[in-house]
Nucleic acid binder design. Structure first.
Lengths: 128, 128
DNA sequence: TGACAAAACATACAACTGTAGTAGATTAAC
DNA sequence: GTTAATCTACTACAGTTGTATGTTTTGTCA
């Protein structure tokens, strides 16, 4: 059972659920910056679709509205995004890194941090 | 004039053009691994759409077939892909790096390489 | 030069996505 | 209880993408 592919809007909705834990359609809608807030029913339809994809589930009903929560973790969803991108690059990280650097998004600190993480991981691997 | 968003199939077609320089529909089609080779007309339709998007142009006609070439660079297209992904992460590279590391795609060499690149860039910046 | 092969071009169509309107149900508020 | 606000559930529709078919054009070779 692989986790579904999520679109941009779907991800924004998931983001609201991930940060809040639970939310109603209205709350999700209001989490969008006022200037680019889709109609209530747009959010609703998309949440329903997420439900069909098993990315979201309803947890309870309060008053006359339902409360939803994420059924897939942020981590898994993000991993999926990155894996998909990497597949487009034939799994090679080098071009990706190069682009990140050229565009100035990757700083020396980021890289140092990454290096630390890697060394930690290495140690852990040795233990087993 | 921003460069168009390309889908997976479109990118695969572009890849064929980027590596070959020029190619006919037939050649593009045959660049796909036999087991997952779309029909000739599928490629054709998609190339036409790429033409509409100005990502591809026809350079000449040889015999009764057209020869196409990429009208956007691999570099620009890849940059676009990564920018789009980064936007989903709010521009923060950290989570992306973390995922790459966790999934074992990013090695210590990769990171060292990135560091070198960064230092070079830094020097260049100082000069101006 | 006429038949055949290959390519081009136009058209189609279903799935998916973003978008939203409407009708009817539910709840809250007097 | 009646009404106003809010939700839900259903329906719709246009743009994009992957897929392909059918028809027309072009080129080649006997």
């Amino acid at each position: 059972m692989t986790l579904p592919k999520l679109t941009k809007l779907e991800l924004q909705i998931m983001e609201a659920l991930w940060t809040r834990g639970e939310a109603s359609i209205r709350e999700i809608q209001e989490s969008f910056p006022e200037m680019k807030r889709p109609a209530y029913t747009t959010i609703q339809t998309t949440v329903y679709r997420l439900e069909t994809k098993k990315a979201v589930r309803r947890v309870k009903k309060v008053g006359n509205f339902h409360v939803f929560e994420a059924a897939v973790s942020r981590n898994a969803a993000q991993r999926r995004l990155i894996d998909d991108l990497m597949a487009l690059f034939g799994g090679r990280t080098q071009p990706v890194m190069a682009h990140l650097i050229e565009s100035g998004k990757l700083t020396l600190e980021d890289v140092k941090e990454a290096e630390k993480l890697l060394r930690q991981l290495e140690r852990k691997d040795k233990l087993k």
